[in-house]
Each structure stands twice: as C-alpha cells, then as structure tokens.
C-alpha cells in the first residue's frame, strides 16, 4: 500500500496557503502530498485569470489574494480547503482532466456520504446556486462539479505545470454572506469546523485511493520555497495583474 503525505495547516495566512501549495506543485520527486487547511483571515481568492474588477465583493474586502489555479473567486470561510500535488503521470491524474476530477470527487463524495450527504457530479442539470455578475466560483458551475440539494458545494481547480498537477478543492461546511445559497453541510452538521470534518475526508481518501495518509510536514526546501512564493501572493502587483 502506498503512503502519501498529509500536511495539515489550520488557520494559516492566505499568502502562505498559496505559497505552500505552489511549492508542493513544484516539488518534483516528492511523494503524493495531500493538504488540509483553512484560512485566517478568511480571505477572498481570485482565480488566476480573473480581473479584480469582475469580482465586486473583492473590491472592498480586507483580505484578497490571487490564486495560481483558475476559475472563479472563493470566500475561504466555513470551509475545509484541500490540495493534492502529484506527478501528471500518477494514476490519480493520468489521462483527460475530466477523469482526474471524477477520481478526486469520488473521494470527496465518499467523505460527504459519512455525513448523510449524497453528492453527485452536476452533469447537465441547472443549479439553484447560479448567479450572474458576482465572479464567485460557487455561482458558476461545470458538469464536473460536485453538487447536492441542487446547489454547488465544492469549488475546485487544477494547475498543471512541469509534468506535475495540483488539484485545489474548497468543501463548504457552512454558508458565507458573499456566497449565499449554496450547498453546505450546515443542514446535517451545524457549526461543523474543518478540523472536525478532516478525519472523515482522510478516511475517505485512504479508502478511495487505497493508500495510507501519513501526517507529515513539508521538507526544508519546500518550506523555503513556500516562503519565497508567499511574498508574490502577498504582493499588490500579483493581485492586480489583471
């Protein structure tokens, strides 16, 4: 049975969160690395290509960063954020992007099922969580998104670079004012904290992927690189690049 690393960083700063994820994406030769994390402050992150002006909620927000993954903006509150970094040729990511999403989402759906939530890929249905003009990830969807209660409940994106892939996912445990009427776990587990959802997600990943997740920390090189990259994610120049 393969062992993957599990790096857990609760209540971490926004720029650090993105810096560490990109450092793990760059970390060629490292074992598959899963991260579970949360944000303090609960920042808004823009998609890599989004224009700041296209996300009205970000214009007067206190904490805003730009991700290196694409898609729409996310308000990182009341959620468990996860990432998985691995080689492009790893069975998790090999082949069409859509299939890699299906593999990751099967594991996330398995964790949600332990809370009595039946999450499915959106497919061709229309969601009640769709909104125009907000630029928010949860207000727009694709057939690959995980949904329940006819609303989007998991935001996700990938970055593919130098033969490696990082998959980002935001699992909404409760609603935020900026995201409103989306799918969460509030109706089955009121006030659920990311730390309390993490064990179910860990077990689901282990069962779905047939691996063991071993709690670990990034190595010295990864930590150093994460600090360097965090400076870019904290910079106004990077935030305002579009």
């Amino acid at each position: 049975m393969d062992t993957w690393r599990l790096v857990t960083t609760w209540n971490a700063q926004p720029a650090f969160n993105l810096g560490l994820d990109e450092a793990l994406l760059e970390s060629s030769g490292a074992p598959v690395t899963v991260r579970f994390y949360s944000w303090k402050p609960g920042a808004i992150s823009l998609g890599y290509f989004q224009r700041l002006a296209d996300v009205p909620a970000a214009l007067d927000a206190r904490a805003v960063v730009r991700r290196f993954t694409g898609g729409g903006a996310i308000h990182h509150q009341r959620e468990l954020t996860f990432s998985i970094a691995a080689e492009l040729e790893h069975p998790l990511y090999r082949g069409p992007i859509a299939e890699s999403y299906a593999r990751v989402h099967a594991a996330v759906a398995r964790a949600l099922a332990t809370f009595g939530v039946t999450a499915e890929l959106r497919g061709e249905r229309t969601l009640a969580s769709e909104r125009e003009g907000t630029g928010m990830c949860f207000h727009k969807s694709s057939p690959l998104d995980l949904v329940w209660n006819e609303r989007k409940g998991v935001g996700s994106a990938q970055r593919r670079s130098r033969g490696r892939v990082l998959h980002h996912g935001s699992i909404k445990l409760g609603t935020t004012p900026l995201e409103g009427d989306i799918a969460t776990l509030e109706h089955v587990a009121r006030g659920l904290e990311p730390e309390s959802f993490a064990p179910a997600l860990r077990e689901a990943f282990e069962a779905q992927f047939g691996v063991r997740l071993a709690a670990d920390v990034p190595d010295a090189l990864e930590r150093g690189r994460a600090k360097e990259l965090a400076l870019r994610f904290a910079s106004e120049e990077f935030l305002r690049r579009r």
Binding site: F68, G71, I97, R160, V165
Partner: peptide, 9 residues
C-alpha cells in the same frame, strides 16, 4: 492557458 478546470503551461 486556462480551460474550465485547469490552468496549464
């Protein structure tokens, strides 16, 4: 380049 679900170099 960004597709709906991934940014690639």
């Amino acid at each position: 380049i960004e597709s709906v679900k991934a940014v690639s170099d």
